[in-house]
Design a protein around this nucleic acid. Structure first.
Lengths: 119, 119
DNA sequence: GATATCTACAACCATTTGGTTGTATGTTAT
DNA sequence: ATAACATACAACCAAATGGTTGTAGATATC
């Protein structure tokens, strides 16, 4: 049986994957991502929600943007930040691949137990 | 309609989630994880696969272990490293929650379009 | 036009990260 | 017992991270 795992996604480079997971490895950034998935928000609106400087929040948004988890859309003098569900889906897909590796290990063990010894 | 998202997992702290995603944010560590999901391997076996010192690989394994993505099992003089699919599943679950936030946004927009104006 | 607001960006700083080498300790093999 | 092997761990270093403040440029508002 052939199982197609690919789901048609463009391949992500190691660096891109690094950036995605690194961006997710910070509670503030995960919270920003949640907010911008719920609805777009300006950088200053976001900044108001956290106990740190505007510039710090700006940097967090930049990290998310660099990972493709968020995009910024100029609207007048502000930049509206939107979460990008597609990138999240890709990260999920990556984790699914790890799961698949584990599953295939089980299959191989099953096969070993099922098959009579070759020698 | 009430949707239970929890899937019965124990709650992960922000720090734990940080460690999981941070551990995944490195290509060498992702590769180690793949290998140890395929089948357990000693630290030195793993180290032989990479162009870096034994100690460096040891540190990578320690990071994965700290994130709960891997466990070490003493076997004679070596430590067999095993991947932990359950932690991967939890990370997947976290990403699924982000997806759910996005989905619920869609639902709200749909509702807005479907419902007649309240005022 | 003047002023306030939102963003961008540089410079700086402390801490963490990802690598190194070296040393010590436990375990197998001769 | 001695030698070889697998691991642990400390000390060190360069680079990246996560924060700060300050300055400058656009855009709105009065």
């Amino acid at each position: 049986m052939v199982v197609d795992i690919s789901s048609g996604d463009t391949e992500l480079s190691d660096d891109e994957v690094d950036r995605i997971f690194r961006a997710l490895a910070d509670a503030t950034r995960r919270d920003i991502l949640r907010r911008t998935l719920t609805g777009e928000a300006s950088v200053s609106t976001l900044a108001a929600a956290y106990d740190m400087s505007f510039a710090a929040v700006q940097k967090h948004v930049a990290v998310l943007e660099g990972a493709g988890l968020v995009t910024k859309d100029p609207r007048g003098r502000e930049r509206l930040v939107r979460g990008e569900p597609e990138t999240i889906r890709r990260a999920q897909h990556l984790l699914h691949q790890f799961q698949a590796i584990w599953e295939s290990r089980i299959s191989r063990l099953d096969a070993l137990l099922a098959e009579p010894p070759t020698t």
